[in-house]
Simulated scan of single mutants.
Amino acid sequence: MPVRPPLPPFTEESATAKVQAAEDAWNSRDPERVALAYTEDSVWRNRDRFLTGRAEIREFLAEKWERERDYRLRKELWAYTGNRISVRFEYEWHDDAGQWWRSHGNEQWEFDDNGLMRRREASINDVPIAESERRLHRPTP
């Protein structure tokens, strides 16, 4: 079975590292890379969608990043205990019509002993913004 450090039980340092690793992976917008952080039978609630398993997660992410153009995310550790981490996040993106959005939310994560996420609960709200109101920009390569 794959191991994905840092492993639970989390400290402030290891929980912060886990959150940063998730932010980095999600900002890659690579569904395969991101999906590898979850157990094969991981259970998700993302807004009003309920997903089970790495294959569904991969498909969901591919669809998400097709729809959410120029996606850029920031995550912040909110709390941690044992094998659980709570995160506050916001991300910005635009739709095909050019409307920019800022999406705010909270996630609760639960990990297995190998550091793979077996459960993710995400509550997310979207706010339309003008492009001039953007706060999150991709770093220049």
Rank of each mutant, 00 (worst) to 15 (best):
R4V: 11
P5C: 11
P6A: 12
L7C: 08
P8R: 04
F10T: 04
T11L: 03
E13W: 01
E13F: 01
E13M: 02
A15G: 02
A15N: 00
A17I: 07
K18Y: 07
K18I: 05
K18L: 12
Q20K: 15
A21D: 09
D24F: 04
D24L: 09
A25H: 05
W26Y: 15
N27K: 09
N27Y: 10
R29M: 15
P31F: 05
P31L: 08
E32C: 00
E32Y: 06
V34N: 01
A35P: 01
A35S: 15
D41P: 00
D41K: 10
V43T: 08
V43R: 13
W44P: 00
R47C: 07
R47W: 01
D48I: 03
R49T: 09
R49E: 13
F50D: 00
T52M: 11
A55R: 11
A55L: 07
E56K: 06
R58D: 02
A62T: 09
E63G: 15
K64S: 10
W65D: 08
E66T: 15
E66R: 15
E66C: 04
E68M: 07
D70N: 11
D70I: 01
R74V: 15
K75F: 10
E76L: 04
E76V: 10
E76Y: 04
E76S: 10
W78K: 12
Y80T: 02
N83G: 03
N83F: 00
I85D: 02
V87T: 10
V87W: 06
F89I: 00
W93I: 01
H94R: 14
D95L: 07
A97D: 06
A97V: 05
A97C: 01
A97E: 10
G98S: 08
Q99M: 03
S103P: 00
G105H: 08
G105M: 02
G105Q: 02
E107I: 08
F111L: 12
D112L: 03
G115V: 01
G115L: 08
G115C: 08
L116Y: 04
M117Y: 09
S123G: 12
I124F: 01
P128G: 03
I129A: 04
A130S: 09
A130D: 13
A130F: 05
S132N: 05
S132V: 09
R134S: 04
R135F: 00
P139K: 07
T140A: 14
T140D: 13
P141M: 07
P141T: 13
